[in-house]
């Protein structure tokens, strides 16, 4: 019980804050509750298959396979696979992080995992189609073309700037997580 409270302490504090907002401004409080409820329902509707796929991936895909496809020596193929994995995704960005954690745990190269995150954040296929329909195809395609080198650059620079120790601790955290 104590552990549970510890784990959820920020969440509990935020609920208290939301309650206070509700008391002082029922209109904003009600609105934020509605938005939160909508988002919780949305999260619960997209999350189950993603985490089931995560579990299946963890159990069925051996570390060696992951290293071959996304590891240190995966080269251009690894980059392309990371890009497609991220782009084929559905769901908000915060769902991508647990998956990134598993990819790291299984021995993927850090820059490939960052490419996966980059693709998930901005070149998701369903979202691109939606973007084209509201902003026009020219806008979507231009942004998409500029985003590809951008995502790669951000991933490579991050990989370069982080020290060996920082990278090791990222992998350590990832392998202790699941």
């Amino acid at each position: 019980m104590k552990q549970l409270i510890r784990k959820y302490r920020i969440f509990i504090i935020l609920i208290v804050i939301n309650a206070l907002v509700y008391i002082f401004s029922p209109q904003i409080g009600q609105k934020s509750l509605n938005i939160t409820m909508d988002n919780v329902l949305y999260m619960l509707s997209v999350i189950p298959p993603i985490f089931i796929l995560l579990g299946l991936l963890d159990v069925w895909v051996p570390r060696e396979t992951m290293i071959r496809f996304l590891g240190e020596k995966s080269g251009a193929a690894g980059i392309i696979i990371a890009f497609f994995l991220g782009s084929a995704a559905a769901g908000p960005l915060y769902v991508a992080f647990p998956i990134a954690g598993l990819l790291l745990k299984k021995g993927s190269k850090l820059s490939n995992v960052l490419i996966f995150i980059g693709a998930w954040s901005t070149t998701k296929i369903p979202l691109l189609l939606f973007e084209a329909s509201s902003m026009g195809w020219d806008f979507m395609i231009t942004r998409f073309i500029v985003n590809i080198p951008g995502i790669l650059l951000i991933a490579f620079i991050t990989q370069k700037i982080l020290t060996k120790n920082e990278k090791e601790s990222i992998y350590e955290v990832a392998s202790s997580m699941q």
Partner: peptide, 19 residues
């Protein structure tokens, strides 16, 4: 387990977004 592990953060984020 991985869902339960990250759930507190997810819920916190959703409340912050709501506010």
């Amino acid at each position: 387990k991985s869902f339960e592990n990250i759930l507190p953060q997810f819920l916190s984020i959703l409340i912050i977004i709501g506010l």
